[in-house]
Amino acid sequence: MIVTPRIVVRVAAVSLLAVLLQLSFFSRVELFHVSPDVLPAYVVCMGLLGGTMAGAVSGFAIGFFVDCLLVEALGITSLVLLGTGYLGGLWRERFEVHGTLAPALLCMALTLVAELGFGAVQLLLGIDAPVSVLIVRDMLLKSVYAFFLGWPIYVGLRRLLRPALVEEPTVRRRRQPTVLGT
């Protein structure tokens, strides 16, 4: 990713919008008793488009911002999301997979990883109450939602960051051979 001041401002504005949308909309709507979490999918898409550094830095910044707005323990969401964004970027750098379903599947898988990571950090810090098995349903449904939300996030971000992307995969339509006179 070619980082220019204009791109930084653009990414910051979209990240702010993503956090506000998550806290004021996605966290407050439920389908089948589970709210979607778009932030892991967002940082995965950042990693897929910009590489490991873009994923990790945006994950850290978004996590920090979320913890600030919710006045929760600082550092937990940052740690989880920076890891998620880094893994998204690592996928881009190692595997170079440009399939149509790849971003959505990766958003799904890494949202599950983020949820597990969040749970692990919380358990390490100590939880004062018993944990219900329904938390597994919550994690699985969140990752399913990330599958459906991942693709529009990826497409939107790619369009927004197009001037800064280094290796935009070009999809060329094959031209059919034509016969003169027909």
Binding site: Q22, L23, S24, F26, S27, R28, S35, D37, L39, V66, L69, L70, V71, E72, E115, F118, G119, Q122, I127, I135, D138, M139
Partner: peptide, 12 residues
């Protein structure tokens, strides 16, 4: 606002 994860349960 509401916390996005089930591990925390808080609202603003």
């Amino acid at each position: 606002a509401r916390s996005p994860t089930a591990w925390r349960s808080s609202v603003t």
